[in-house]
Design a protein around this nucleic acid. Structure first.
Lengths: 325, 325
DNA sequence: CTGAAAGCGCTAACAT
DNA sequence: ATGTTAGCGCTTTCAG
């Protein structure tokens, strides 16, 4: 492999100074079309690719954006969500000379790196509880957007699915089916996504019996335990709104083991549209890829200092009717 | 936010030159304990964090490693695999000042970036077919390790699960159960993981009927189609080895729809241990996190120029007995 | 519209 | 064991 060409070689070949090459590369104005073309040709001919480290150093920009996924989240929250968001985030970045740096944070350790000027902004995905990372970053002036409403509130803009409305729709569907004893397997109480879906269920259930609530941790295992507990408390229940498909899988196993047929004996609605199941799940779909694109779009706008941006964005969900309810 | 301190400030505070600070930071030898301590204190007091761009530029090291996931793979291959591998990769990197840069490659576009000196090495996950990326990187002298055996062969070291043996074990289990008509839903023929699991099935089936093969694309949908085709060709089949749990989910749906009970009428064994199902799947487990750690370990060894490294590593799998077979 | 020159913050010889 | 001196390859004033 031959040494890679530097900007000087390009300049020489194009017969201009390296300043001009730099201008062309960065799309600066005030460059004649002739020179621009000459430089472009030279770049191609030499297969020149600028050195990012040098660019960052000289340009005071990192040309990198961090995607922070809390370590627990990586394990707990349905992986399809994170994977889909990543795809969207990436798609939105396409064409830019910006790297996506992935970080899995144990609480506390990534803060100094991020505020240390190594990235131009950060996307922080679905934090638990009152993680101080968001405010830390924000207070240090780093552009940040949260994926999922931060429980603690605060000034950080966020993108989220409309979990509340999705849950309302799901529950109303159960009601419209004529179900009388509708339970819910909710998510953890330290995540907004868990609380919002529970609130939606409560809203739709107003005027009805709302004590049939069990919490799971967004794992199949958790869904199974919750279902068992629900069945013990109310053997006659005839419907369950499960706040995540992955938990619904566990619930389905338990219902099956207890001889309940789905949907004949118990109707089940999930959330996420992330897993195939037997029977196929009626569920609330969220477009995770779009979620990711929106997230990145919002962050780029933030970084570029656009004015009048909405503090947050709520993405619509839709009910997908299948067999389970 | 106040301007972040540079190495000069640290040097001044510690009463030494910046070279010495650099030495301490990089763990170079020939530094007295006294100075080392003084520098450490100064670093902490100032909250100093070195500028990566400058380090890379001066040190001719990128301090970054790329994790390349082909775009199709991101969508098609069971996400739990990629997510788990990422966790492992990350865990192995913990403590190093090295960033993980995530890239989703459309065939062809990441090559120049990677060979352009922006990363010190690359991990390339589960390529389809004869993707030229691996050899491109390798030929350019970039340390590379493949996650999953590259179909095309070649000199690039790789880490993989022992898919062949896993499939043999799974199939032998089916045979030991007394099943007589054992089919398989294999993976795509353009991925080693698909071929290896199929070979394992064939090996275990030697002397038996081996025409009951249908291919799926590692999606539930694909598994469902394959199962349908199998059932049409041989309504009497009494066992299926499915080369991926996610496809098994689809197969289960179809078996269910056709009135076949699992495991009473048809025994099913999956691969990956990645999804909860009804009934719970007997499956071949691979430790994906370990896979990721091994991958990164191997790449770091490669980068550091260690001698006598094995060209490839095969990680063991284990059969997990549950209800489906 | 273009060129010259001065760094960006660090590492790595080379001295001492 | 530590300090001095050059750059690393760009971007960016500032001239022209």
């Amino acid at each position: 492999m031959t040494r890679r060409p530097g900007i000087d070689e390009v300049a020489a070949l194009a017969g201009v100074s390296k300043s001009t090459v730099s201008r062309v590369l960065n799309g600066a104005p005030h460059v004649s079309t002739r020179t621009r073309e000459a430089v472009r040709r030279a770049v191609i001919q030499l297969g020149y690719a600028p050195n990012q480290a040098a660019r960052s150093l000289a340009g005071h920009r990192a040309n990198a954006i961090a995607l922070v996924v809390s370590e627990t989240t990586g394990r707990v929250l349905a992986d399809p969500f994170v994977a889909g968001v990543m795809r969207g985030v990436h798609a939105e970045l396409a064409g830019r000379r910006t790297q996506l740096v992935l970080m899995m944070s144990r609480p506390g350790d990534v803060g100094s790196y991020l505020t240390g000027g190594h990235v131009d902004g950060a996307l922080v995905i679905s934090m638990h509880g009152h993680d101080p990372l968001l405010s830390l970053l924000h207070d240090n002036g780093l552009p940040v957007v949260a994926g999922g409403r931060p429980l603690a509130g605060g000034p950080v803009p966020y993108v989220d699915s409309d979990n509340f409305t999705g849950a309302v729709d799901a529950t109303r569907h159960l009601i419209s089916l004529g179900c009388g004893r509708i339970a819910t397997i909710a998510g953890p109480t330290d995540m907004a996504v868990g609380l919002d879906r529970l609130s939606g269920w409560r809203r739709a259930m107003s005027g009805r019996r709302t004590d049939l609530v069990a919490h799971g941790d967004f794992t199949a295992q958790g869904g199974a335990s919750a279902m068992t507990s629900l069945l013990t408390r109310e053997p006659e229940l005839d419907a369950v709104f499960v706040a995540a498909d992955i938990m619904a899988l566990g619930a389905l196993q338990v219902l099956n083991a207890h001889g309940r047929r789905v949907p004949e004996d118990v109707a089940v609605v999930g959330f996420d549209d992330s897993v195939p199941a037997v029977p196929p799940l009626t569920t609330v779909r969220q477009d995770v890829e779009r979620f990711g694109r929106m997230l990145m779009w919002r962050l780029l706008a933030e970084i570029e200092g656009e004015e009048g941006l909405p503090p947050s964005v709520l993405l619509p969900t839709s009910l997908v009717l299948r067999t389970s309810a």
